[in-house]
Design a binder for these strands. Structure first.
Ligand code: SF4
Ligand code: SF4
Lengths: 135, 135
DNA sequence: CCCTAAAAGGATATAAACAGTCTTTTTGGT
DNA sequence: ACCAAAAAGACTGTTTATATCCTTTTAGGG
């Protein structure tokens, strides 16, 4: 359980690759896709999402491409993952306790909150700078 | 992401209910299902899985039903969850590093291992005794 | 021995999510 | 004007989730 989807895995690979490049250099989507071994059309969708929320900057037309939206040390793995996979939610009741009428006296509920917190802490503690291969 | 499925949620509800009963009393599936608000046919499938690995004991025929396979303090939430949802695997490479040819010099890989470890620790630290409503 | 209660097992149905492709549009550079 | 590249949206095939039947097996009680 708790498996990252392909999309999530691809997203990380792609943006980590970007983080390994000079901050001011734009990269072609096709180059990134090839480098990280991801279907280009799929990676395009992912980077569109990134672009919308500013995680990456995109440039169209000739000489266009992508670069990081912020310095790599200011982007956490948590942000990247949540951008494409949605929030870390071990159980629906963590997001909306009112959904489950049992939540008031449920002893399991706090466990899921704790799981969420731990996972967020691990992922939030890692930046793209830590992850880029050539630091 | 990382969401528990209905099956997992139902499984926990069902077995936690059992844990709240006397250890030597068998409970009808239909009663459990009604008490925890789960479709009986679905819960049946779940308890069949539990039964196979000994998490619960089942008795057929008149006067049959289910009871815990072990004392509630000896069953962890981790066991219950993994029984129905499979192992905690934030990413496939955690189970099979050889699947990904990048795993040798991938800085993300150890992060997923850490996530797995943290989650397992949280879930493994909670027993059914802790979870049962009337202790 | 038969009847009934109850779980086990297997087959099926529906819907949602995942994984990816294709086509068209917009934008920027030359 | 033309070309290069990303954006946007529609579309498809596959797999997983969420169940619901139906039949079979097992056990107890009269
Ligand atoms: S029963 Fe408890 S753990 Fe399950 S959804 Fe409700 S509050 Fe959450
Ligand atoms: S690239 Fe790294 S994190 Fe992704 S699957 Fe391979 S080893 Fe795991």
């Amino acid at each position: 359980m708790m498996e990252l989807t392909r999309k999530g895995e691809y997203a990380i690979r792609g943006i980590v690759y970007l983080a390994g490049k000079q901050t001011d250099k734009v990269c072609l989507l096709s180059d990134i896709a090839e480098a990280v071994n991801v279907p280009p059309t799929f990676l395009a969708k992912i980077f569109q999402q990134f672009s919308k929320i500013g995680l990456v900057k995109s440039y169209r037309g000739t000489g266009g491409g992508f670069m990081l939206g912020r310095p790599p040390e200011q982007i956490t793995l948590l942000e990247v993952v949540e951008a494409v996979e949605g929030p870390i939610l071990p159980n629906r009741c963590v997001a909306a306790p009112t959904d489950c009428e049992r939540s008031c006296d449920c002893n399991v509920h706090p466990v899921w909150q704790r799981v969420q917190s731990e996972v967020r802490q691990v992922l939030g503690g890692v930046s793209l700078k830590d992850l880029a291969i050539c630091k």
